[in-house]
Design a protein around this nucleic acid. Structure first.
Length: 640
RNA sequence: GCCGCAGUAGCUCAGUGGUAGAGCGCACCCUUGGUAAGGGUGAGGUCGGGAGUUCAAUCCUCCCCUGCGGCACCA
């Protein structure tokens, strides 16, 4: 006999070598029917595994959220079986459950095409309908190796070799098909269910390493039931509607051209939005003691050698050979230029902290496959700044940047911010000691701010460790924006100094920081976050004044003039169209405020306002309307 | 950069080995109307670029460019 503890605290006696399936059956037939896995002493496991005496066991039903990964992982196996049934000789690599679904990597002479997916899916549904039991077997290493060698599965042998000595080698079998697998799995292929869909084929490097062979990956989405699958599909459609590339076109904000891949052509409306962001940031920075500068876009190779970019970053730089046979580079970062500005004149400790800000446009030759609308471009504008301070001021300055960036994100409606701390990478400059100090300063600032963070070992910049601020948007997606980096190296390389109270010349410490990060990217994120419906203070066109009849043209022109005088961005629409047509068009362009004027308003000196997001219309006196709109259109925080 | 897919009017897309079509948009005309599409007429295309096959290529083949989905990269 063994004794099992249940989550409610009850204890149950079962005969020796009983399984979780037996436990479920002993409780009741309907429970047994619903149960697909068990959590034994905190670990998800198969129903068929014998339970140890004294184990704490919780039974997991198929509709339990914790069963979702099992459904997805089961489907990965079913996918692999289907593929090998259809194309014998296809080699299998790995097939995990992932967020929203699963994938399996295959090695095959000719990669899969989208046309293969319905065929594979059909086969998968046959395998599921067969309700073949999953069984777990423990094999000897040599036995497993011999099997996969005979089966022509080199990737499985590599995975087998990666299993630490002493750990068991488990094989999961479904009918005639088997896979090297840690498990667990559910009872039969039938438990995987039919709420899944194969979505795409993609290339993926074996073990995620670009030096390895590229395998052919098949992705699927899967959920516990059709309702959840449909909800996911709806969500995908919603995300597509928010796509800033589509909205950018519909709202006439920007476009791209083949002649400048990864570089934005800003249209008047997009540029207004962009400039509104810069204006806001300029005011916030001024308030925080920054001074704005500007440095050249193209500078000689020797500068980049001094900064270390030539040695560490050249493959990402746009290079230019000039008629006088000099090597220039378009700046990929603003820091070297700022070093030269700092270097002008003698700096005293009284000048520190010195905060040089620049809305500098940087160019980086990003890999072609990385480009993505405004979110990953080859030329972009940073709200960059470099803070020169004494070692003693370092932590306080980090804290100030942290406070500023969090305050700014709040103004834009991003309350959910995560921080990543990336430490020294393999490819780096500077002494271990300065890295210790830099990493220590960032840690200390974060600890003092009391903000939780995640450490990413080896992901820092070549000149220093960095903090990265990751925003979560309205539909739960994460975007990396701001960054804060500590740098002892560049001041040293440039021989930067300040005169200390003792009269001694010392090297300042430098902070690199960008809060929006890239203005281009931040604009894209805002568009997606708001689904194009930007808050009034950011909307490129805040108000359209549209006429119902020609009789109101004069009044409309007057109203627009008054609104503009109060600082609002206003367009008039005097076209020979019906008001319904105009309303529809401006609503689709996501103009937040529409004012309709007909004979009535013209006569009474009033305006009829239609505000996006609210029902119906309101008719007000012009003066009242201007006050109200101008107030609503102010930036979210009073600027100093 | 790698794997796959795609590129036809401003946009969304149809189409064919014999030099192209729709809807929306645009222009003009009629209509002067009250909150998500009033009606008519018309203009608009080097069918991404280059080479090849062919009597003939937007269509078939190859190369390149760009985009899309992943992978890798992302100071």
């Amino acid at each position: 006999m063994i004794h099992i503890r249940l989550p409610d605290g009850a204890s149950r006696a079962l005969s020796a070598s009983s399984t979780a399936a037996d436990l479920a059956a002993s409780i009741g037939p309907s429970l047994a029917k619903r149960t697909v896995a068990a959590i034994v002493d905190g670990r998800l496991s198969d129903l068929s595994a014998p339970l140890p005496d004294g184990a704490a066991v919780e039974l997991v039903a198929r509709d339990d959220p914790r069963a979702l990964d099992l459904i997805r992982h089961d489907l990965a196996h079913v996918l692999a079986e289907a593929v090998q049934a259809l194309w014998p000789g296809t080699r299998t690599a790995i097939g995990p459950a992932i967020e929203h679904g699963f994938y399996y990597d295959f090695d095959r002479e000719t990669p899969f095409t989208p046309e293969d997916l319905p065929v594979i899916e059909k086969k998968m549904r046959e395998i599921i309908a067969a309700r073949t039991p999953f069984t777990c077997e423990e094999w000897g290493r040599e036995e497993a190796r011999a099997h996969f060698e005979a089966a022509g599965e080199p990737y499985k042998i590599a995975l087998l070799d990666a299993i630490p000595k002493g750990e068991p080698v488990t094989i999961y079998r479904q009918g005639d098909w088997l896979d090297l697998c840690r498990g667990p799995h559910m009872r039969t292929t039938g438990d995987a269910g039919t709420a899944f869909r194969l979505t795409r084929v993609a290339g993926a490097y074996w073990r995620g390493d670009a030096n390895n062979k590229m395998l052919s990956r098949i992705y699927g989405v899967a959920f516990a039931d059709k309702v959840a699958l449909e909800a996911h599909m709806t969500m995908m459609a919603e995300a597509e509607k928010r796509d800033h590339r589509r909205l950018g076109r519909e709202m006439n904000l920007f476009h791209f051209e083949e002649v400048a891949p990864g570089s934005v052509f800003w249209h008047p409306n997009g540029w207004r939005l962009f400039q509104t962001l810069i204006g806001y940031m300029r005011a916030r920075q001024e308030e925080a003691g920054y001074v704005e500068v500007n440095s050249p876009d193209i500078m000689d190779r020797s500068l980049w050698e001094t900064s270390g970019h030539w040695q560490n970053y050249r493959e990402n730089m746009f290079l230019a050979k000039t008629q006088d046979d000099r090597d220039y580079a378009l700046k990929p970062m603003n820091c070297p230029g700022h070093m030269l500005i700092y270097g002008q004149g003698t700096k005293s400790y009284r000048d520190l902290p010195l905060k040089l800000a620049e809305f500098g446009k940087v160019h980086r030759y990003e890999p072609s496959g990385a480009l993505h609308g405004l979110l990953r471009v080859r030329s972009f504008t940073q709200d960059d700044a470099h803070i020169y301070c004494t070692p003693g001021q370092l932590t306080e300055e980090c804290l100030k940047v942290n406070d500023l960036v969090m305050s700014i994100y709040r103004d834009f409606g991003f309350g959910d911010v995560r921080i990543k701390l990336s430490t020294r990478p393999e490819n780096r400059i500077g002494s271990e000691e300065s890295w210790d100090r830099s990493e220590g300063a960032l840690r200390e600032a974060l600890d003092q701010a009391g903000h939780p963070y995640t450490i990413f070992e080896g992901e820092g910049a070549f000149y220093g460790p960095k903090l990265e601020y990751v925003l979560r948007d309205a539909i739960g997606r994460d975007w990396q924006c701001g960054t804060l980096q500590v740098d002892f190296n560049l001041p040293e390389r440039f021989g930067s100094t300040y005169v200390a109270p003792s009269g001694e010349k010392l090297a300042p410490v430098m902070l690199h920081r960008a809060l929006f990060g890239s203005l281009e990217r931040f604009t894209g994120i805002l568009i997606e976050h708001h689904a194009g419906h930007l808050p009034l203070w950011l909307a490129p066109i805040q108000v359209v004044v549209a006429t119902v009849t020609e009789a109101a043209d004069g009044w409309a022109t007057e109203v627009a003039k008054v609104l503009r005088a109060s600082g609002l961005r206003v367009e008039t629409d005097l076209r020979n169209e019906k008001i319904g047509y105009k309303v529809r068009e401006h609503a689709l362009r996501k103009v937040p405020v529409q004012i309709a004027l007909g004979a009535r308003e013209a006569e009474q000196g009033t305006v009829t306002i239609r505000r996006h997001g609210t029902e119906g219309t309101r008719t007000l006196d012009l003066g009242e309307a201007v006050d109200c709109l101008a107030r609503q259109a102010r930036p979210p925080r009073e600027l100093g």
